[in-house]
């Protein structure tokens, strides 16, 4: 490694801090950046600067935004009746792309993860309760992933919300579109049957 000059080493080390980037990949990326025209590299540096400067949490839904409230929370055409609770901004984006939901969101920024020391206080749960207490919400849709931790988080939230006078629903789990039924695992099939709807 010591064949590289210090500035390049620094870049490699910084890139290596990114999730999923090992030392080799970091070196490959750093060398690619080094070979770029200067404007392109400057733009990368600037865009990193910019996200840190401009992007913050929406104080209502806790998604990333440049304005507070975010575009979704500020959109008068979206109903305030329903809040869809998701793990992270990526999940919110995925639901947005589906155009299947016209309400508001709430981003938890994770799921309960006892072994990582992530409990209710580390998630945006208090903030969700406050939003619900404001009285406009009629339905909370729990859209955490159907993983053990995601399900446990949904169960925890359902327990917290059971005494609020609102509907608490959980997204359905079932057979993915375009798959052959017999290749689904037993748990998925069982859940798909439980969540069946009138044809």
């Amino acid at each position: 490694m010591s064949v590289f000059p210090p500035a390049l080493l620094r870049l490699i080390r910084n890139l290596g801090n990114l999730p999923g980037i090992g030392e080799k990949t970091a070196a490959r990326l750093a060398l690619a950046i080094l070979r770029w025209p200067e404007v392109r590299a400057k733009e990368l540096a600037q865009s990193i600067d910019e996200v840190k400067e401009k992007i913050r949490f929406c104080s209502t839904c806790f998604s990333f935004t440049e304005t507070d409230p975010c575009a979704i929370c500020a959109d008068p055409k979206r109903t305030t009746d329903a809040i869809c609770v998701v793990e992270d901004p990526g999940d919110m984006m995925a639901i947005e792309k589906s155009s299947g939901f016209k309400g508001r969101y709430h981003v938890l920024h994770g799921v309960l993860s006892p072994m990582d020391g992530v409990g209710p206080d580390e998630l945006k749960i208090k903030e969700l309760l406050l939003r619900i207490k404001s009285g406009q919400v009629k339905e909370v849709i729990l859209a955490t992933s159907p993983t053990v931790a995601g399900e446990a988080t949904a169960a925890y939230l359902a327990g917290l919300l059971q005494n609020e006078y609102i509907a608490v629903t959980r997204i359905a789990c079932g057979v993915p579109m375009g798959t052959d039924l017999k290749y689904n695992d037993e748990m998925t099939l069982r859940r798909a049957l439980e969540a069946r709807t009138k044809a």
């Binding site: 309960l112 006892p114 072994m115 931790a149 446990a152 169960a155």
Partner: peptide
């Protein structure tokens, strides 16, 4: 059934840890 009850989830995680 562990995931359906937060307390079960918490204990299962504790035992595993």
């Amino acid at each position: 059934s562990i995931r359906k009850v937060p307390e079960r989830f918490a204990y299962a995680a504790y035992f595993c840890e």
